[in-house]
């Protein structure tokens, strides 16, 4: 019953922004397809708690029960991630791949950037959203599930973050 409700919710509320198949076509809105189940669950909890306040999400998450969150997490984790169609710059991909080694991104997000547990999938994520998100961490506007991200991107320029985003988005499965 709850799972059906979650499916209904996903289609009725989530799809208009995050895409019919969980792959966002809208700038600065993240794709959720193929994200680690725990990551989605955790973020919905943090949004509901007000730890990660996002105005457009507030009315959608405020009445979710734990079991709804669980079902939504399972739903999106099971969808197929697809590239956003944004243009990917090979020179930036190369620069980003070098930065990613220095910053040790793979230790949490895995070498293929598929993510795991509380760490999100970055591969095939929207470039604009990745840049937006990393800026929030860098500029101390978002604490995340762990504070390590604010440390990982500390002191990076916008150009560095853009390069990292192009690299991450360029990775497939």
């Amino acid at each position: 019953m709850t799972f059906l409700f979650a499916l209904f919710l996903a289609q009725a509320s989530c799809a208009s922004c995050h895409g019919e198949d969980g792959n966002s076509k809208i700038a600065n809105i993240p794709s959720l397809a193929g994200q680690p189940e725990f990551f989605i669950l955790n973020q919905l909890f943090l949004m509901r708690e007000g730890v990660r306040p996002i105005e457009s999400m507030k009315p959608l998450v405020k009445d979710l029960k734990d079991s709804d969150i669980d079902a939504l997490a399972k739903h999106f984790a099971g969808l197929e991630p697809r590239p956003s169609g944004e243009s990917i710059d090979p020179a930036l991909v190369k620069r980003g791949s070098e930065l990613a080694v220095t910053l040790r991104c793979a230790s949490c997000h895995l070498p293929n950037f598929a993510g795991r547990q509380q760490m999100p999938r970055l591969a095939t994520q929207r470039v604009d959203y990745l840049v937006h998100s990393m800026k929030e961490f860098r500029d101390n506007k978002r604490s995340g599930a762990d504070t390590l991200m604010s440390n990982a991107v500390a002191g990076l320029s916008d150009a560095d973050l853009t390069a990292l985003a192009h690299y991450a988005a360029s990775l497939g499965k």
């Binding site: 725990f38 669950l41 669980d70 230790s107 895995l110 547990q117």
Partner: peptide, 13 residues
């Protein structure tokens, strides 16, 4: 090992 990472803390009971 390159894949060492902090452990997740469940938000659930």
């Amino acid at each position: 090992a390159a894949n060492l990472a902090p452990h997740a803390t469940p938000p659930t009971v």
